[in-house]
Simulated assay, not measured.
Amino acid sequence: MKTVCVGVCQTPVLGEIKEINPWLDRIAAEDTKSLWVFPELFLGGFDYDHKEKWADQCLEIKDIMEKFARDTGHILAGSLWCRKADKYYNTFYLFSPDGGTMELYSKLHLFLPGRENEYFTAGNKSPELFQWHDIKMGFAICHDLRYPELFLIQHAFEPDIFVLNAQWPLARIEHWLTLIKARAIENQCYILACNGMGNSALGKLAGHSCLITSWGKTEFILNEEPGMQKAILDEEVIKNDRQMFDSRQSPFFDLKFRHLDI
């Protein structure tokens, strides 16, 4: 397996498209071509009053990120406002040098206390697989973290890592840290989690973006400040962690998952 680096860009909610430029400049200066994840709705956040504006500007920033990936060889990912017909979605996009813009997943578990269900339409399918240098990736967005079924259903393609982004509030930081480790351990996968930081429409965000191994070991974790961090995925962890035992399926329970027609 080639050396695979993954990292996070822990940003505040961006209020203008140009605010992404310093982050892209820092990524471009990195020698190792890596996967970089931005937070949930990193442009505009949950600013419901200006949803039309953010949907339009997200079209522009998608073009910028696609061109950056193509020109630099880095991969970018994050969720953005997506408008289709008269509906809005919280959609996870991935921008790769070879594949262009990929729409991988629209958030299923909308956060009702934040009124997300009043402005967004839930997706209607589980995330699609993305494979890079033999590493298989699954995906989730913020409130999805509380629902282990979304992770379990992605076992059909044997993911090595789940990529999660969020706008998780500081008020529930202990839930964030605990649930990320739980999802990593129970799925025997890496979890790369990128959270926003600073003030937002939902309150102060927690930061604490991190990379957790399938053993629950913290490879890196940021604090509440803006920042970037990356790490190399360990081939031994990916290939050998499940050899001692595989706890992702029980010999006593045959779970049947079905997709709801939303």
Results as ranks from 00 to 15, higher is better:
residue 14 L to E: 03
residue 114 G to H: 06
residue 247 S to R: 12
residue 80 L to P: 07
residue 123 G to S: 11
residue 56 D to H: 08
residue 230 K to S: 07
residue 48 Y to G: 01
residue 211 L to Y: 12
residue 63 D to S: 13
residue 147 Y to A: 02
residue 100 G to P: 05
residue 19 E to N: 11
residue 152 L to Q: 13
residue 98 D to F: 14
residue 241 D to M: 14
residue 9 C to S: 13
residue 163 V to R: 00
residue 226 P to G: 04
residue 243 Q to H: 05
residue 111 F to T: 15
residue 40 E to K: 07
residue 56 D to K: 06
residue 29 A to L: 06
residue 95 F to R: 01
residue 170 L to T: 10
residue 164 L to D: 07
residue 29 A to P: 02
residue 94 L to S: 03
residue 199 N to M: 11
residue 139 F to N: 01
residue 223 N to V: 00
residue 1 M to D: 14
residue 257 F to W: 15
residue 87 K to C: 13
residue 64 I to N: 04
residue 240 N to L: 15
residue 237 V to A: 13
residue 6 V to N: 02
residue 136 K to R: 14
residue 229 Q to I: 00
residue 122 A to I: 02
residue 71 D to F: 08
residue 105 Y to G: 00
residue 182 A to R: 11
residue 3 T to M: 05
residue 127 P to V: 03
residue 91 T to R: 08
residue 207 G to N: 08
residue 82 C to N: 11
residue 108 L to W: 15
residue 120 F to Y: 11
residue 188 Q to W: 08
residue 7 G to P: 13
residue 65 M to E: 12
residue 112 L to Q: 12
residue 220 F to D: 00
residue 54 W to I: 11
residue 217 K to P: 00
residue 236 E to P: 01
residue 223 N to Q: 08
residue 134 D to Q: 11
residue 180 I to D: 06
residue 175 H to E: 15
residue 221 I to A: 04
residue 57 Q to T: 00
residue 112 L to V: 07
residue 230 K to P: 03
residue 166 A to W: 06
residue 90 N to Y: 01
residue 114 G to T: 00
residue 248 R to S: 02
residue 90 N to R: 02
residue 21 N to M: 04
residue 232 I to T: 15
residue 206 A to R: 13
residue 150 L to R: 10
residue 22 P to H: 04
residue 134 D to I: 02
residue 185 I to C: 02
residue 197 M to N: 14
residue 160 D to I: 05
residue 194 C to R: 12
residue 94 L to Y: 04
residue 132 W to H: 14
residue 223 N to P: 01
residue 2 K to C: 05
residue 180 I to M: 05
residue 96 S to Q: 01
residue 119 Y to M: 00
residue 218 T to P: 04
residue 126 S to V: 13
residue 214 S to M: 14
residue 194 C to L: 11
residue 259 H to F: 10
residue 181 K to N: 07
residue 54 W to A: 03
residue 33 K to S: 12
residue 227 G to E: 06
residue 70 R to E: 09
residue 134 D to M: 04
residue 20 I to L: 10
residue 27 I to C: 01
residue 146 R to L: 09
residue 9 C to V: 14
residue 45 G to Y: 14
residue 119 Y to N: 05
residue 118 E to G: 03
residue 111 F to C: 15
residue 182 A to N: 08
residue 18 K to C: 03
residue 228 M to R: 06
residue 185 I to F: 14
residue 151 F to M: 02
residue 209 S to M: 01
residue 217 K to I: 02
residue 140 A to K: 01
residue 171 A to Y: 11
residue 45 G to T: 08
residue 120 F to P: 14
residue 81 W to P: 04
residue 40 E to W: 04
residue 223 N to D: 14
residue 75 I to W: 03
residue 28 A to M: 06
residue 109 H to M: 12
residue 103 E to V: 01
